[in-house]
């Protein structure tokens, strides 16, 4: 967490909370430039919700404000680290990301369509899996462990260059089977508490869970810098935390179950802007 020494605090956000715990009416513009769609109509496949909200709406004004400027967003430190990694040759082929892909900015739009069916691999791949395929096949480098620091930093870099673009993951065609699997997981109750994702994030978003607000569990804004652990957190690590909280044995980040769930949850946010790296508590 940033050490803040504020001699004069100015509140940019003055809009009041709509209802206690519920999504507020603020709007998000990053660097006075990138307009972020944080609230829109739910995609057609989604029956349980009418309007979808980014988790940004459920945080307090101070946390929201940190995301409005790259200097104030601690997640951008990790994006900078990934920029260095991007340009550093690694592995047997002596190549860096930049040798094939030039600037990270050339990857704009990529984050918005992942997880995505890979024709050559015959499977649905998350962004991290695709990066690792690049590392092992093209660079001859060691793959990163799923949700490891370097992998999440790279995901954050790729997200940062796509900010403002609408999430648009494909749910039909060859990805359909994985998507259906993810949907089944979403509505399956797990653990001693017998909770499914939907029990909290579809039926009770906007209510309190202990002292915190329940969001819709949208993942358009991942990776997320969490003030509680002062680092970037991946989607699947978050899934694991959620399932653990139902007192269940969880799947592992990188497992086929979580890949399917990531595709399904991403599709629930089709239409929201890519927002990562975001700031959450």
């Amino acid at each position: 967490m940033k050490t803040m020494i504020l001699m004069a605090a100015t509140l940019v956000l003055a809009a009041p909370l709509a209802i206690a715990g519920g999504p507020d009416d603020d709007t998000l513009t990053i660097n006075d430039d990138i307009e972020i769609v944080t609230k829109t109509d739910a995609p057609a496949h989604l029956d349980g919700l009418d309007t979808i909200y980014s988790g940004w709406h459920f945080r307090d004004d101070g946390t929201q404000e940190m995301e409005m400027d790259d200097f104030d967003n601690p997640g951008m430190i990790f994006v900078d680290m990934a920029r260095d990694t991007w340009a550093t040759p690694e592995g047997a082929a002596g190549k860096s990301c930049a040798d094939c892909h030039n600037d990270p900015e050339s990857m704009a739009g990529v984050r918005a369509v992942y997880p995505k069916w890979s024709e050559e691999a015959g499977e649905v791949r998350t962004l991290q899996m695709q990066v690792n395929a690049c590392r092992t096949e093209r660079m001859g480098a060691e793959p990163w462990k799923y949700d490891a620091g370097a992998a999440i930093n790279m995901e954050a870099l790729l997200a940062s260059v796509s900010r403002g673009m609408p999430v648009d993951v494909a749910i039909d065609g060859p990805a359909g089977e994985t998507w259906a699997r993810g949907k089944e997981l979403y509505y399956t109750r797990y653990g001693l508490l017998e909770l499914s994702c939907a029990n909290c994030h579809e039926q009770n978003f906007g209510n309190y869970i202990r002292a915190d607000h329940l969001s819709q569990g949208q993942i358009n804004a991942f990776p997320a810098y969490r003030l509680k652990n002062a680092k970037l957190n991946g989607v699947q690590g978050r899934f694991k935390g959620c399932i653990r909280d139902t007192r269940a044995e969880t799947f592992s980040p990188g497992s086929p179950e979580f890949v399917a769930l990531e595709l399904y949850v991403a599709s629930r946010g089709n239409g929201l802007s890519v927002e990562g790296p975001s700031v959450r508590n």
Partner: peptide, 8 residues
């Protein structure tokens, strides 16, 4: 904390 930030 890590990554000290000052605003003045």
């Amino acid at each position: 904390s890590t990554n000290p930030y000052f605003e003045f």
